[in-house]
């Protein structure tokens, strides 16, 4: 049980760390797919199958595709793919900030007295989830639907090639 969790954690953290430090953007994106699959494995481990499928569909399927499209649309030559190293100061500052956050979070987690249930994972069937979604949570579902629609429209407006490029900048 715990051994599987540690394996999954190694997969997630390892692939993410490597992805975040690689030079080649395409390789980073592909490694992140691996990391997202690892997160899906974590959900499976925790007994949340439906969330695992959603994770695979949305992240490993959809988001990764958008990322790859964005990468391919925004490069001009093969050399652009491997990004020049960021300035050293920025990298050090970033890692320091990340490290400080990590330290603080670790301390907080370890110092808190967390009770856990000794029992097995709560089971939730797809049917229950569906009833929950169209019952008590129906307002949230509608709001999410609106958000998704607006995001879709917004993405189209942002990415559409506007003919009056200059006008926007005038005021």
């Amino acid at each position: 049980m715990t051994a599987a969790l540690i394996l999954i954690a190694l997969l997630i953290l390892g692939s993410t760390a490597v992805a975040m430090s690689l030079r080649n953007l395409i390789h980073s994106a592909l490694l992140l797919v691996l990391s997202w699959m690892g997160i899906a494995a974590f959900y499976l481990w925790a007994g949340a199958e439906f969330v695992a499928f959603a994770q695979v569909l949305v992240y490993a399927g959809a988001v990764s595709m958008i990322v790859l499209f964005a990468v391919l649309l925004t490069r001009r030559s093969r050399a652009d793919l491997s990004i020049a190293p960021a300035s050293l100061r920025r990298a050090v500052a970033g890692v320091l900030a990340g490290g400080a956050t990590a330290g603080v979070l670790t301390l907080a987690v370890l110092r808190t007295n967390l009770q856990i249930a000794p029992s097995a994972a709560p089971t939730v069937t797809v049917q229950q989830l569906g009833l929950e979604l169209i019952g008590p949570q129906v307002a949230s579902v509608l709001v999410v639907g609106v958000i998704l629609t607006v995001a879709l429209l917004g993405a189209v407006v942002l990415a559409a090639s506007d003919r009056n490029d200059g006008k926007e900048d005038a005021p």
């Binding site: 953290l13 993410t16 760390a17 975040m20 430090s21 960021a86 920025r90 990298a91 500052a93 970033g94 890692v95 900030a97 990340g98 490290g99 956050t101 990590a102 979070l105």
Partner: peptide, 9 residues
């Protein structure tokens, strides 16, 4: 934190 460090650096 890996995500944060990546986003920052």
């Amino acid at each position: 934190c890996i995500g944060l460090a990546g986003a920052l650096s």
